Amino acid sequence: MSPLLKTIFFSLFAVLAGIILSGSIYLWTDTNGIQHFSNISPPENGPAEQLSEEKFILPRGHQFTIVKIFDGDTIQVKGFGLKFTIRLVGIDTPEFGKRGQKNQPYSLQAKQKLTHLLQKKTISLKQYGMGKYNRVLAEIFVHETNINLEMVRSGLAEVYRGKRSKKFDAAPYFQAEKRAKQSRKGMWIQGADYTSPWQWRKKFH
């Protein structure tokens, strides 16, 4: 792509400003001659041009389709020529074991719940910046339903105990967590045996 076309391309996205993705953006052409823009390098590390733009802007309200659900709070999506990973902001779900370690109780149920909420759905995003591992931090919505909040209401996610964005309103999340605990929904049925994912990671990861 010529420098002029790249300038036009990025100017167009700037006009449609909404959600900002930071990090490297790659440009490549697949075997069918279709050009792709993504913050994920091409399959099998094929030839690609790495664009030097520090910020890439998505149009407000754009719908994305689900590519993969990793666990109860992390997914991969695609849309508008991009493929990227989202960490559901403000929540934390039980952890899957890594490197042969055991799964935290209710980790599978949390993933199954998120899968059920998102199955055959498209989502929109409300972004809160970038987190670790080049993941977009976002609340995700199916129509008007806040999926992050639904995970807490189901008793399969707690409010994230680490540092949260100042723009993120955690109040409804804490209310939902309190109700789920009182009702002993999902993972809260464990009572005193419950371990926060935050503590679990420190112990096993």
Rank of each mutant, 00 (worst) to 15 (best):
S2F: 10
P3I: 07
L5I: 12
I8N: 08
I8S: 08
F9V: 02
F10T: 07
S11V: 11
S11W: 13
L12Y: 12
F13T: 02
F13L: 08
F13H: 14
L16C: 12
A17G: 13
L21D: 02
L21A: 07
I25N: 09
Y26F: 15
L27P: 04
D30F: 08
D30G: 08
D30S: 08
G33S: 08
I34C: 09
Q35N: 15
H36A: 10
H36L: 10
F37P: 03
S38A: 06
N39M: 11
I40C: 11
I40T: 15
S41Q: 14
P42R: 08
P42N: 10
P43D: 07
N45W: 10
N45M: 13
P47Q: 11
A48C: 11
Q50A: 15
L51T: 06
L51S: 05
E53P: 04
I57P: 00
L58K: 06
R60L: 02
G61W: 03
G61D: 04
H62C: 07
H62T: 07
F64S: 00
T65V: 10
T65N: 13
I66W: 00
K68V: 06
F70G: 04
G72M: 03
K78N: 14
G79T: 02
F80M: 13
F80C: 12
L82N: 15
K83I: 09
K83P: 00
F84G: 01
T85Q: 10
I86T: 05
I86S: 03
R87C: 03
R87F: 05
V89I: 14
V89H: 12
G90E: 02
T93V: 03
G97K: 03
K98M: 08
R99T: 12
K102F: 12
K102Y: 12
N103R: 04
Q104F: 05
Q104S: 03
Y106F: 15
Q109V: 02
Q112S: 11
K113S: 08
K113L: 10
L114D: 01
H116I: 03
L118E: 00
L118A: 01
T122K: 13
T122E: 10
S124P: 01
L125G: 00
Y128G: 00
Y128A: 02
Y128D: 03
M130A: 09
G131W: 05
G131F: 04
Y133V: 05
V136M: 06
V136E: 00
V136W: 00
L137D: 02
A138K: 01
E144S: 11
T145C: 07
T145Q: 15
L149C: 05
E150R: 09
R153W: 00
R153D: 00
E158V: 15
V159D: 07
Y160T: 12
R161I: 12
R161M: 14
R161W: 10
S165M: 11
S165L: 09
K166P: 06
K167D: 14
Y173A: 06
F174P: 01
Q175R: 15
A176E: 04
A176R: 02
K181D: 09
K185A: 12
G186T: 04
W188G: 03
I189K: 12
Q190R: 11
G191S: 10
G191W: 09
A192Q: 14
A192M: 09
A192F: 08
A192T: 11
D193L: 14
D193N: 15
W198Y: 15
Q199T: 14
Q199S: 13
W200L: 08
W200D: 05
F204H: 14
H205V: 12
H205A: 11
